[in-house]
Design a protein around this nucleic acid. Structure first.
Lengths: 208, 208
DNA sequence: TTTTAAATACCCCATATGGGTGATTGATAT
DNA sequence: ATATCAATCACCCATATGGGGTATTTAAAA
């Protein structure tokens, strides 16, 4: 499965789309559509040895979903790149797909010519994503607002590393009592009562 | 600042690159380079009212870093799109930039023609990223493998909620000693020695 | 100018925590 | 058939933790 010629599998329940995609691929230099499965089950039958470079996976399939199929197939074929090709653009579909091991996420309104370029892109180590999808993903990293002072944030980070009062105090060159004061203030600001919860909240709110 | 004509600010310390970029932009139909700052400080001087659509931001600047500058400027100019344009490709740079509010992340080896397309892309609600960067970002969603048993995972989730031995024991209808045993096993599997670190690792490894 | 917030520091004290060690049962894997 | 692992429970003990206060200095904001 070299970089020169790309072998592809399609998993797509709609007959029309499946046909169109495979025709486009086989009609394009450097691309071969090796499989065109109508559901996840038939794709999973060849699990363990899927002799393709790239899988184009629909999400909304009869029976097992494309996301589940991606998870199982990726586990057994880690070198294969999975591109989700779907109409779903909700956050759950996007993030679950990525967690399942997809390397790209394209909407079905993608131009066929662009699709070929995107397939090349994923083989070259990229991650093709439709514009709005990419924006959603990167937006998920945005920080809300940080109620903690810089010093307090420093302390929370050290708590997450498992340091205790004394150890934090040594790093900061202050008294352990001061560290304790900071931690009490942190608890109060985050509305928690112990380290475990504080760290959980701090991470969820992207404070650390 | 309409979609038809795009006004841009550049923040880049290297004179050569700054000049080249601004010349390319001004020489291209539909683009105007309105500012070309040599450092973050001069860009921050116009904070609160940055009359541009897009900022091209370098990271490695003298004084305040491009990431910090992005954070401050984005807070005051939420409608402006920030694209990081840098040589840095380490995870910290990438994720901190996104957390700071960047909507795109391009490496400096980006083709000038592609750059123009990427700027259009960000204005249309996309998030242009160089191939390897996109791959790194989406890879960050991958789940590794969970060394914890179901019961242990349950316990870790309750630890994250701030419950203590007794409270967890009550929820699970087992003895507090059993909970303690579970927690000790969790520590051993995650190679940590206390709750704080355990929760940090569990979240980072997407176990909870 | 006054107030507020952050960073510093200290005290008391009940209890939660973590390390060590050991044991039983049932299920799963070899 | 046997070994391994998950889940369950128990006891000892030193120390870390969190809740309750209080207080000073400095810098920024109102």
């Amino acid at each position: 499965m070299g970089l020169d010629h790309i072998h592809i599998a399609i998993v797509e329940d709609e007959h029309e789309i499946r046909q169109t995609l495979s025709l486009i691929l086989d009609g394009s230099k450097g691309f071969t559509c090796r499989y065109a499965f109508p559901d996840a089950e038939s794709a999973l039958a060849s699990i363990g040895n899927l002799p393709v470079d790239v899988v184009l996976m629909d999400i909304d399939l009869p029976g097992i979903s494309g996301i589940e199929a991606t998870r199982k197939l990726k586990r057994e074929n880690p070198k294969v790149d999975f591109i989700i090709l779907t109409v779903q653009s909700d956050d759950d579909s996007i993030f679950e797909s990525l967690c399942a091991g997809a390397s790209g996420y394209l909407l079905k309104d993608t131009d066929p010519t662009d699709l070929l370029q995107h397939i090349r892109e994923v083989r070259e180590g990229g991650s093709p994503m439709s514009g709005p999808i990419a924006r959603r993903i990167i937006s998920s990293f945005r920080v809300i607002d940080n109620p903690l002072s810089d010093r307090e944030t420093e302390v929370v980070k050290m708590l997450a590393k498992g340091l205790n009062y004394r150890e934090i105090a040594e790093v900061l060159y202050v008294s352990p009592n001061t560290v304790k004061s900071h931690i009490k203030n942190i608890y109060s600001k985050l509305h928690v009562g112990n380290r475990a919860e504080a760290i959980y909240k701090a991470i969820k709110q992207k404070l650390i």
